[in-house]
Each structure stands twice: as structure tokens, then as C-alpha cells.
């Protein structure tokens, strides 16, 4: 029992928690932007796969790391535009289209991977982002290494959360975006285009999802392999609800989830073979469902979420 508690006071645990949370922060923010504008984006899982590959492959082919991040973002935005085109002006089912985008992005990625690297058996590694210690701050106990000795990619995740919060609540664009998800008629009455705002939001949100995927290959695992996203996208959809569509709460939710995930890995070491390892691996998914059950009754969905907007229709 004492050993299970001691885990909480090791720096490596908190470092891992924040590292695990980083890709989730990007992707959760991405989904949050889409949903705040009124569009559910179930393409998230596939877009993360595509982003993970695009970023990794750019660096593998000789590009530098930040170029990789940019390429991943553009890849995500492209899939986002497709999702937006089909669901916003054409009004296709957001559920079905999202699943379709996930299937398309995943299979296109695997196809490209096999085409580009036909012979490899073990995935090649790249020179990924290195931890960058921030002087003085990194020397604080526990919090220091966890927050100030991560890779620049993690710092970007925190910056993205701040930026999204500022955009949503402090700018006219954010107001328009939120209106698109709450009351699109009011937005149209202002002379703004619901279609344009929603399309833009889905493209931008999808770019963030892809950057989250790229974190996996460029800051966590250093190589690309199949199944590496492994349901993280779906977890992020749960995190958006858990964070009640607010960037700050979503950030906290992601870190909480990261801490839980890091904890279950370490707990396996303490408990040993007494409990099958699969039980620990299940816990994050079970936790996501439980979190949904806990908050869903009082969740306040964006009112126009999943409602296609047709001008002049009531």
C-alpha cells in the first residue's frame, strides 16, 4: 500500500503524466473547437493517425522538427475541410461522416506508409524533440520537472490551451464561433456566414488533432507504428464532455487522465502478476466512461451541436 502511494511523490510519475497528457491536450482542444461551432468530429481518431505519420515522415525525409509539426497540422486541416464540406454545406450525418473520415485517414496513412517503406520490418526512428529545461523553475520539487523540463512540444500544448481560451472568450471571432454552435440564426442575422465559420472551425480543430497525433511520433515514441493512437481520439471526445466544452477544464481533464494513465502503468509494477496487466490497460477507457456518466446529466451541450444549418429553415 505504501509503495502504491509513494508513486505519487516521484518526479518521474508527474513528468510522465504531463507527457501522456500533451497529445490529449491538443486533440481535446481541437474537438472542443469543432463542437463549440456545432460540428461533432468523429474523424479525430483517424486524423491523429494521419498527423502522427505526416509529422514523423516529414522529419524522416529530412525536414526539421517544426516543419514536421506544420505538415501534420496541414494534413489535419485538409481532412477537416473534407469533414466540414460534407457535414456543413451538404449536411451529411456528422456521426457517419466522422467515422468515414477516421476510416479514410487511417487507411490512407497505412497505404502511404506501406508504399513509402515497403521493406521495413521494424519502424525507423527519428531524432525527436528533446526536453528543454527552463532554468530555476525546473528545479522546483515535483512541479519543476513535470511542467518545466518537458520538450518544447509540450510547452506548445499549454500555449495552445491559453490561445484557444483567449480566442474563444476574448475575441469577436471566438464569439462568432460560439454563436455558430449555440444560435446560428443570430450569427446569420449579424451578416456572418455560419457555413464559413463552421468550416473554418472544423479545419482549425482538425489541425490541432493532427498536431496531437504528431506529438506521439515526434516527442513520445520517436517512430511511427500501426495502432499507435489506440483510441486516444475517442478518449478526447469524452474529455471534451468532461471539461464541459471549456479549454481550461479540458486541459485539467487531460492532465488528470494523463496522471491516471501514468499511475496505472506504475501500479502494475507494484502489484505484479496478481492482477492481469490487461485490467490496468482497460482502466483508462473505463475511467473515460465513468467520467461521462458522472457529468452527462448536467452537461450543457452547445445547443446547435449536430444540427445542420440550412438558411431560411426552421
Amino acid at each position: 500500500m505504501a509503495a502504491a502511494l509513494e508513486i505519487l511523490f516521484t518526479a518521474s510519475f508527474w513528468v510522465a503524466a504531463v507527457r501522456i497528457a500533451s497529445p490529449l491536450i491538443f486533440a481535446t482542444l481541437g474537438e472542443l473547437i469543432c463542437e463549440r461551432a456545432g460540428v461533432l468530429n468523429l474523424g479525430i481518431e483517424g486524423i491523429m493517425v494521419a498527423g502522427a505519420f505526416a509529422g514523423w515522415f516529414t522529419v524522416y525525409s529530412g525536414g526539421d522538427l517544426w516543419t514536421g509539426v506544420a505538415v501534420a497540422a496541414l494534413t489535419g486541416a485538409a481532412f477537416g475541410l473534407l469533414h466540414g464540406l460534407l457535414t456543413v454545406p451538404l449536411g451529411l450525418s456528422q456521426h457517419v461522416t466522422g467515422i468515414g473520415i477516421t476510416l479514410l485517414a487511417t487507411s490512407l496513412t497505412y497505404y502511404t506508409y506501406r508504399l513509402a517503406l515497403p521493406e521495413v520490418t521494424s519502424p525507423p526512428k527519428i531524432e525527436a524533440f528533446r526536453p528543454l529545461e527552463i532554468p530555476l523553475l525546473a528545479d522546483m520539487p515535483l512541479v519543476g520537472p513535470a511542467l518545466f523540463a518537458q520538450t518544447p512540444f509540450t510547452y506548445l500544448a499549454f500555449a495552445a490551451a491559453a490561445l484557444v481560451a483567449w480566442l474563444l472568450y476574448r475575441t469577436p471571432l471566438g464569439l462568432a464561433l460560439r454563436a455558430a454552435g449555440e444560435n446560428p440564426d443570430a450569427l446569420e442575422a449579424q451578416g456572418l456566414s455560419v457555413t464559413a465559420i463552421r468550416m473554418g472551425a472544423v479545419a482549425a480543430g482538425s489541425a490541432l488533432m493532427a498536431v496531437g497525433g504528431a506529438f506521439l511520433t515526434m516527442s513520445a515514441f520517436n517512430s511511427f507504428f500501426f495502432e499507435m493512437v489506440n483510441g486516444r481520439g475517442w478518449v478526447c471526445i469524452a474529455l471534451v464532455v468532461f471539461g464541459s466544452w471549456r479549454p481550461g477544464k479540458a486541459l485539467l481533464g487531460a492532465i488528470l487522465f494523463g496522471a491516471f494513465d501514468a499511475y496505472q502503468v506504475r501500479l502494475q509494477g507494484v502489484v505484479g502478476d496478481a492482477v492481469p496487466y490487461q485490467v490496468f490497460l482497460m482502466l483508462p477507457y473505463v475511467l473515460s466512461i465513468l467520467a461521462l456518466v458522472a457529468v452527462s446529466r448536467r452537461a450543457s451541450y452547445p445547443k446547435a451541436l449536430m444540427v445542420p444549418y440550412r438558411k431560411g429553415e426552421r
Binding site: 468523429l42 456521426h95 489506440n230 483510441g231 475517442w234 478518449v235 471526445i237 469524452a238 464532455v241 490487461q278 490497460l281 482497460m282 477507457y285 473505463v286 473515460s288 466512461i289 461521462l292 456518466v293 452527462s296 446529466r297 452537461a299
Partner: peptide, 23 residues
Amino acid sequence: LKTRFGVDEVVTTLLLNFIVLLF
């Protein structure tokens, strides 16, 4: 969970895929 608590079944059924495969 959908009818009683308003939990979106898309997410729960998707997550159950991973849980069941581990099971």
C-alpha cells in the same frame, strides 16, 4: 446510459471496443 443519464452512446460503444478486446 443514453436513456437514463444522457451519455452519448457513440463514445461509450467506441470505448467498449477497446475494453472488450483487452478482455
